[in-house]
Design a protein around this nucleic acid. Sequence first.
DNA 1: TTCCTTGCAAATCGTTTGCATAATG
DNA 2: CATTATGCAAACGATTTGCAAGGAA
Lengths: 136, 136
Amino acid sequence: MAVKYSRQRQLIHSFLMTRKDHPTADVVYQNVRQEYPNISLGTVYRNLTLLADRGEIQRLQVGDGVDHFDADTSRHCHFVCTDCGCVTDLQLDCLDHILTDARKKFDGRIERQSTFFYGLCRDCLNKPVGISEQNA
Amino acid sequence: MAVKYSRQRQLIHSFLMTRKDHPTADVVYQNVRQEYPNISLGTVYRNLTLLADRGEIQRLQVGDGVDHFDADTSRHCHFVCTDCGCVTDLQLDCLDHILTDARKKFDGRIERQSTFFYGLCRDCLNKPVGISEQNA
DNA sequence: TTCCTTGCAAATCGTTTGCATAATG
DNA sequence: CATTATGCAAACGATTTGCAAGGAA
């Protein structure tokens, strides 16, 4: 239960804080590896899970089958591009409102909410057709 | 591309329509099997994917690592119990509002939205501590 | 010294896929 | 007949886990 310091966890967490694009475990691994070559994928997974469990980071299941991680634990939404798969933050004012509304209607205890938007990001919108494999 | 009739797909789809609890592929398999014992898991997966791609059902990634399926394709939210894992529908009035708001703020094309709420369902709220493994 | 962490590799588990055969249109 | 769907089993990919060794308190 008690958590002890580890250089690996420290590197993982601080790497995540430098990124606003919500990397996957493997991306974290590839990057931390540059500074700490001996680190293993298992360790990355273990620490991401530990940090998420302690609420120090957020685990995002954006719907592409791979977990993404976000060092920003504040309440915010995400946009996921269905073409390039990029994930970006989206700040909305009405988050509290929807939560209140849901609590009013639901017979149980609602603790948190997660909202994803899907569509095409700016870059993919402007991209000429055929520049990447189009999703039919 | 052309879709041909199959008894298996028919059974899968109509089973899904009888359920409002958003079963997983395996649950669909176990149930359809009672009426059609020779069906294979692969066929169930193939048809759920086909139906979802054609918009006849909805694939839900509720965050437990397993895909759930919903025969109700109307716009609505879901509540996921973090204790028992049950998934229930939640109808909210402000869905259009949040979508409009997001479109206003985002520089790209937002096509759809998905919102999940997490907490304890009514049954788990009333359940005495220790009746199931508590998530520490 | 005690307990937490690691690296490594093997194991898990949900889902997908290749292939030869069966069913549909 | 051409094409799509099936059952089966093997393949896959992301994540987890067991274990012996290393590091922190």
